Computed example of a mutant assay.
Amino acid sequence: ALRLFYSSVRFNFTIYHIDSKGLKDYVAPKAKFTVNDQVAISNNAWANKSGQRITQYQNQNVTILSVNSGHYSNSDYTYNVKLSNGVIITDILEQDLIKANQSAFNVGTSAYITKSAWATANGVKINMKAGKHVTIIAKYARQASNSKWQYDVKLDNGIIYKNVFEQDLQFDKVIFNVDSNKVVAWFENHKGKLTYSMYGSRNGADGTADCSGSITQALYEAGASPYDYLYSTETLHDYLINNAYKLIVNNDYRGWNAQKGDIVIWGKRGQSGGAGGHVGVMTNNADNPFFISTCYITGGQKNTAVQEVRYNEYFAQHNYPYYYVYRLIK
């Protein structure tokens, strides 16, 4: 390519400006940017004037430090710039700079972590924080994944996560929708795979589970909001209500017309901790319906924790404990 390193030439005692395209003008064009301007490196940028690769800086915002005249490629000016992390790059061609990228969120604004969020730019897992409300406390113009910006955010409980991708934040509250058929399917799919224990993972992660830990995991995998911890029969009530379940029966001696997906908790709240409570889900709408749960029916035999039984018989065998029925309300 023809390289022109002069800005003007004299013809017949008249000074003309010759631009990068070989055209002559009486007045030299002005630089597009000035010192301290905030601009961005374009996604077509390849190398600076001296050949230094700059592809890794594409789409990042920079600050203009100095403006240098001199023709090169399709540019009449080059620039020295500083990235947000302090790195300085010299002699970037004017053709490789564009208007600064605008962030979707500003410091002090509210946002929510999206359902699709998995980890921050530095690898910290945030998938279990999906749907949580956050406040933006810092922002950085950094290209990574599908984002041109990253943020430091603070949860309502004061915990701070750094370098959250812009793609993992949204303005609107995140809506979670449970599929009750998937809750039932979780237990069906874990038949013959879990051993009962209240002291292991509780949700099947290590091959052991208990009733409330497994229902918490089943709800989450069926579309419920991330849990703060694996709930017990004492604390599960609030999680259900926060995910569109409604209490439809509170220990009614007449029973109720069961529907597939109804979640039944045994044990009066405040007295159901440890072995004092139980929870499971109805699997059909029959007059004498089935009920599936992670239980101790087999005395803890390996891989037999998930059992499906006739609810009425099982209920009678346990002397008709105090019970609550929650139903998903669409």
Rank of each mutant, 00 (worst) to 15 (best):
153 V>K: 14
187 F>E: 06
119 A>W: 10
113 I>L: 12
167 Q>S: 15
136 I>P: 09
211 C>S: 12
138 A>D: 14
214 S>R: 02
205 A>D: 07
170 Q>T: 15
203 N>Q: 03
113 I>A: 08
173 K>F: 02
128 M>S: 11
218 A>D: 04
214 S>F: 15
157 N>R: 06
192 G>I: 10
177 N>V: 15
204 G>Q: 03
205 A>I: 01
222 A>V: 02
200 G>E: 01
166 E>C: 04
197 S>K: 04
121 A>W: 08
150 Q>W: 02
183 V>W: 09
181 N>C: 01
109 T>F: 00
148 K>T: 11
160 I>M: 06
228 D>H: 09
134 V>H: 13
141 A>T: 06
212 S>A: 11
120 T>K: 10
182 K>V: 00
164 V>I: 14
163 N>H: 15
218 A>N: 04
160 I>H: 03
144 A>Q: 12
159 I>N: 15
168 D>Q: 04
135 T>W: 04
158 G>F: 03
158 G>Q: 04
189 N>R: 11
220 Y>T: 09
164 V>Q: 07
177 N>F: 08
218 A>K: 08
223 G>N: 04
145 S>Y: 11
210 D>K: 02
212 S>P: 10
183 V>N: 13
112 Y>G: 08
166 E>W: 00
120 T>A: 09
157 N>W: 11
118 W>K: 14
109 T>D: 09
209 A>G: 13
118 W>M: 07
156 D>F: 01
146 N>I: 02
124 V>A: 13
216 T>L: 01
136 I>H: 06
228 D>T: 12
116 S>W: 07
216 T>Y: 00
191 K>L: 08
171 F>L: 12
174 V>C: 09
151 Y>S: 07
151 Y>H: 07
124 V>T: 15
124 V>I: 14
195 T>F: 04
154 K>Y: 01
220 Y>S: 02
213 G>N: 04
207 G>A: 06
